[in-house]
Nucleic acid binder design. Structure first.
Lengths: 173, 173
DNA sequence: TTTGTTATTGGAAACCATTTTCAATAGGAA
DNA sequence: TTCCTATTGAAAATGGTTTCCAATAACAAA
């Protein structure tokens, strides 16, 4: 119901949608998009909305399907383009979990960065976010980054850590 | 010259090639392949040979091209199939550095495991192997693996760490 | 509010790494 | 050497992503 209500507003009056922005989870993203000189289109807003409402690791098509529910005019191409742009400005992270399609998630939630890494089940592809050991990791990574930057003349901007294994269900098969 | 010599032998007499196996760097791989019940074909041997002779991070096509020099009969399909098999039996690691093609490297050299991670330049795609901080990493990862295994009921088998940044050349542009 | 410029869009087609299909071939046990 | 069947190469199919292009919508300026 609420979803339909929002949809209606989108088509009737864009400024009404803007007034509602604090009911959505990604109001703080908009300034970022505009700050980089990009136009804040309905499609881009809808993609950000979907990303801000989930903990899942959505593929471009997943996002397309979800956006399509509230904004059927969107095309898959635009979803790809939007995601590409969001990754470029650092608002979205792009992951590869080895199943042949990229996965995306918002770089930070409304409460700020939510630093976590992923446990990937090589049996069923399930992804678990974990936030444990992050402190130790951050400490180690910081140290490693400094050392590696110097030794290999790299300006390190980013890192990736993933664990692979079998989830409980897959182990019992 | 040496390369041509070996090639000639390949076509003339297979057992001669076998006698020469200790001149190649991957003799210890063969038993592994056969141990898993796979036939040791000329193509598979040639792929292992290419992998054992390089520190580079080759794509399937890179490998195809190099194998093709000494064993022109090979097809790209077989390279893909061989790599897939080698990854499955754990003899080869498969990496994704974000450029849309998979990269492969031998899981261990003649001197045993050569545990290292990668520094990826997001500017030019250059990959640097690093072996620094591995001890600390291993310690941390072991601890994390134990904790995560228990907390999330995952049997962790593997991990991936990569750093991204700009190499010296790309920073000066 | 209206207008004008141009970034952005959707759909179709192109792209391209990888996989599948299938008949021919080659590995290797007997 | 023979035989069985795993393996092969070539061509076609697949599927996620990108490109092309004319139509559209964002939004700055009037």
């Amino acid at each position: 119901m609420e979803r339909l209500f929002l949809l209606k507003m989108v088509f009737i009056n864009k400024s009404k949608v803007m007034e509602k922005e604090f009911e959505r989870g990604h109001h703080w993203c908009r300034g970022r998009v505009k700050g980089f000189g990009f136009r804040l289109t309905l499609g881009r807003d809808a993609v950000l909305d979907v990303l801000s409402r989930t903990e899942d690791h959505l593929s471009a098509e997943d996002i397309y399907i979800r956006v399509h529910e509230t904004y059927p005019a969107i095309g898959l191409t635009s979803v790809y383009r939007t995601l590409d742009m969001l990754v470029n400005i650092g608002l979205v992270y792009k992951f590869d979990f080895g199943d042949g399609r990229a996965r995306f998630e918002l770089a930070e939630g409304p409460k700020g960065k939510d630093h976590h890494h992923h446990l990937v089940c090589t049996g069923c592809g399930r992804i678990v976010n974990y936030r444990d050991f992050i402190d130790e990791e951050v400490a180690l990574l910081k140290k490693a980054e400094e050392g590696l930057s110097e030794k290999h003349n790299f300006a390190i901007t980013n890192h990736l850590i993933q664990f692979y294994g079998l989830c409980e269900d897959c182990r019992n098969k």
